[in-house]
């Protein structure tokens, strides 16, 4: 880990610019939030392939569906909350039902739109997107993974959801091999407990692992960047060794990473499980780190939860 941070949305804007010439069929659509999501950076260099459709998200998704039927590669961008909730019908009935290669980039996901409050905080998008047949679901864990996720999506012949955060995230994987689809990244070897994490809390899980090691608890830490299709094998290998798992995500504990892993392990290798995420509640306005901590997502929360589980 370095001390350097980059905002996930800036990494996204830059990735679009970097890939603009390589993928000449790429069309970027945004719904009047391009200055926030940073798709405007693409609009500046490729105005003819940038469509700002106004505050009409459902229409935007179906326009993208129409573009995809004609061989273009649309990237639909807005806040995750609006994409997952205002366009569910369009994503299901037009894009996923027809297996069209449309890329959805949900920005400001989790609690990252912290000051705007619960109306803007997206903690059910993974549950919704994961439930759609044909959908691939990617969650980059640091800014360096954003462009790789986008390239994976551009090479995928069906719909892809990429979940992004608004805020700065430490660079974690600059010197590591590139993110791969359906391949969990092993971040620490241990035998007492497995931890599986996705998205922004990845850096917290790394710090918590270091603290726990000092307390004599050895953690097998996996970062999951593809929620669907899930890399089940590495999870089975890990829990076969540790016998228990804690999942960590910036999402409701219902239906996200924890849900996906519970479904898989429940069937193939049942072990004791615990979940860190937003409990079944609406959060509130506040500064991002404090908000995350209040709703149970922090280094200390992870350490405490593991300590508790070890005592049982």
């Amino acid at each position: 880990m370095t001390n350097q941070s980059i905002a996930m949305r800036d990494a996204f804007g830059q990735a679009l610019v970097n890939l603009a010439d390589k993928y000449d069929k790429m069309v970027v659509l945004d719904a009047d939030v391009s200055s926030s999501t940073k798709t405007i950076e693409f609009g500046k260099i490729k105005p003819e392939r940038f469509l700002n459709v106004g505050v009409a998200e459902a229409n935007m998704v179906d326009i993208a569906g129409g573009l995809a039927t004609c061989g273009l590669r649309p990237i639909v961008s807005t806040f995750a909350i609006f994409l997952a909730l205002k366009c569910t019908d369009q994503i299901r009935n037009v894009v996923c039902y027809n297996n069209l290669p449309v890329i959805f980039v949900g920005g400001y996901a989790g609690l990252s739109d912290s000051f705007d409050g619960a109306s803007h905080q997206s903690v059910t998008d993974l549950a919704i997107m994961r439930a759609m047949p044909n959908m691939t679901v990617l969650v980059p864990g640091d800014p360096t993974e954003v462009q790789t996720a986008l390239e994976i999506a551009l090479e995928n012949n069906g719909p892809t959801y990429i979940r992004l955060s608004r805020n700065p995230s430490p660079i974690l994987f600059e010197k590591q091999p590139l993110m791969e689809i359906s391949k969990n990244r092993k971040l620490s070897n241990g035998s007492d407990i497995t931890m599986a994490v996705c998205g922004i809390p990845t850096f917290m899980a790394i710090e918590a692992t270091e603290k726990l090691m000092k307390l004599g608890v050895s953690v097998d830490l996996l970062q999951v960047s593809t929620l669907k299709p899930l890399d089940i094998d590495s999870l089975i290998t890990s829990v076969s060794k540790t016998g228990k798992i804690l999942t960590i995500e910036e999402h409701s504990v219902i239906g996200g990473l924890g849900g996906a892993i519970a479904e898989a392990l429940g069937k193939h290798c049942p072990v004791k499980m615990d979940y860190i995420g937003i409990e079944d509640v609406f959060a509130e306005s506040g500064p991002y780190p404090e908000l995350m901590a209040k709703y149970g997502i922090s280094v200390n929360a992870i350490v405490d939860r593991v300590k508790n589980s070890m005592e049982k």
Partner: peptide
């Protein structure tokens, strides 16, 4: 109409 608009924009 949205989808067909996407097709016309593709053209």
């Amino acid at each position: 109409l949205s989808v067909t608009l996407g097709m016309a924009l593709s053209a």
